[in-house]
Design a protein around this nucleic acid. Structure first.
Length: 126
DNA sequence: GTTGTGACATCGC
DNA sequence: CGCGATGCCACAA
């Protein structure tokens, strides 16, 4: 059965991979934790099921430790909303996203159908 | 050494 | 459609 793992076997590698992916997110687009996790390959020793339910969590943990050069601002939760408490910088994130052209609806929600990034291989990368 | 809590996603009502 | 509760382990103070 899918079991939530607090962190991947190699958090460091996972984080680096995640950050690398996050840096690929084009401006004006946003991605969800689940998507990021889905695009990454499950670390050795982790089953697809466990990864499916754990990945998003790892992404969150890794992002919390992300370096300053990572556009963590473009990472939102599955609801298309900012996950961070505004006192932690959530409000700041919203401002930055708006600055990139992303539109929030009345409920601070982003239309993932329009602003959601299709993925590292679907969008025009270069 | 111990205690508390967590950048999420999903199901139920 | 919105809100609340649940699951796991590791890390920080």
């Amino acid at each position: 059965m899918s079991q939530i793992l607090a962190s991947p076997p190699d958090p460091k590698s996972f984080a680096l991979q995640l950050w690398a992916l996050a840096r690929q997110v084009p401006p004006g687009k946003v991605v969800t934790y689940g998507q990021l996790a889905a695009w990454m390959l499950p670390p050795p020793g982790v089953t697809a099921e466990d990864y499916k339910v754990s990945g998003s969590r790892w992404v969150g943990v890794a992002m919390s430790r992300c370096p300053g050069d990572v556009p963590w601002q473009r990472v939102v939760n599955a609801q298309g909303r900012i996950s961070l408490p505004k006192e932690h910088g959530g409000e700041r994130q919203r401002q930055m996203l708006e600055a990139e052209g992303i539109i929030f609806d009345s409920r601070e929600r982003i239309d993932l159908k329009h602003f959601g990034w299709s993925g590292p291989g679907t969008g025009a990368e270069s």
